[in-house]
Design a protein around this nucleic acid. Structure first.
Lengths: 218, 218
DNA sequence: ATATTGTTATTGGTATACAATATGCCGCAA
DNA sequence: TTGCGGCATATTGTATACCAATAACAATAT
């Protein structure tokens, strides 16, 4: 039903450039060369600038006047803040969504976990995106647009840390189990259980991350 | 120290257009005419579109492909969501900021309340902005940039509801007292007290709002 | 009255140009 | 050699002109 969405050029560019940044393909210390990137992508620099502006709002890049857009560096403080916010918001949002989800949304959530599982098995490129899609499918049915948009951004920011520090370690069996339990309780509309599982899941990921950040520290 | 900030054109336009929207000067059902507004403000439409894109991220306008940018309508659901998010985030953020604030930041917070008080007495145009500035002064010293940015947006959204439904009622003595108590505890670095006062303050405002929304309802 | 067609207005996007600023290089002096 | 000032260049930010696609609207026909 939502298949006839009109995607404007900046819309597509946001996704494209975001993926590149998340994949670590854009150097962090150098400014993004607008003309060059626009030419490479076959667009002019105006829609590209619009896309970069949106990515700035998402917290992935930072603009300095007359110097351009820079990919924001990763930092332990940012990681801590992102996860602190998720811990505060995501459990309740998912619990509310569980109680409100309609049949179609429940099927979408199940499908999202399936997609994530196969992605994980084949260890493809889109694990991060699939993970985000799964989490969002658990949140969106709450019908809280601001909260959903915010958590979407927080997941994008989280993704960078997970990819950099956790994914290289290989398949994470515990996360899979947590996802399965999460979905099961969500489908059972067990609100307290969902909130609890979600909190534990985010907390566990954060602790994994802390271990790696600690290990990789100077 | 931060006096040499370069404000690019979109930066200024964001503030300008935001103020107009908050003041209710932009009709909600009609698309914002870009060429006309750009001409009126003496700029071209490129920086204006960039500003509108940012306001879309702030949740003040919504863009529909090929139709343009529309001011988002107010709704009780949005108001409830905004205040629910503030209740979850603002008390802890302010408490943390109270413990971390340096001398300069403490003076800024006091000055912000003074400014708000005189604004309120003279019933000028900038009460909303002063109120936002005061709240932000209590939050920013926490040093959590994402949280700060988020609460900044939530305050902008809150402002529309307060202006529309609460300010017309005249001076709000209770809010003044709450602000004073809030600052006093904040300066005393009484973290629990700050969190408590902030929660009560936001909750009270929400309840005032609910009463008005209920009264104004169909 | 409703549907259809044609006209107009507006947006989304491109190309191009230009001023302001930043960057990097070169030569010069200590 | 090292550090500094100044010039040349590159890049961003913005304006202008223009075009295609779409939406809104008016006029017409059924």
């Amino acid at each position: 039903m939502n298949s006839i969405v009109i995607r404007t050029l900046p819309d597509q560019l946001v996704d494209l450039v975001r993926d590149r940044i998340l994949a670590g393909l854009v150097p962090v210390d150098r400014a993004i060369r607008q003309d060059a990137l626009a030419a490479e992508l076959g667009v002019s620099k105006i829609p590209l600038r619009e896309a970069l502006t949106r990515l700035e709002q998402e917290g992935l890049v930072r603009s300095q006047a007359n110097r351009g857009f820079f990919v924001r560096p990763l930092s332990t403080e940012e990681a801590e803040e992102v996860y602190a916010l998720r811990l505060k918001l995501e459990p309740d949002a998912a619990a509310l969504a569980a109680s409100r989800a309609g049949e179609e949304e429940r099927q979408k959530a199940s499908a999202a976990l399936d997609a994530l599982d196969t992605m994980t098995k084949h260890n493809g490129e889109g694990v991060g995106a699939a993970n985000r899609a799964f989490h969002l499918a658990l949140i969106r049915p709450a019908g809280r647009s601001i909260t959903t948009q915010l958590l979407e951004r927080l997941h994008v920011l989280s993704d960078r840390y997970v990819r950099k520090h956790l994914e290289p370690l290989g398949r994470d069996e515990r996360a899979n189990e947590e996802h399965a339990e999460l979905l099961q309780r969500w489908l059972a509309r067990d609100e307290d259980g969902v909130a609890q599982s979600m909190h534990a899941h985010v907390q566990n990921t954060l602790e994994d991350l802390r271990r790696q950040l600690g290990a990789n520290a100077e």
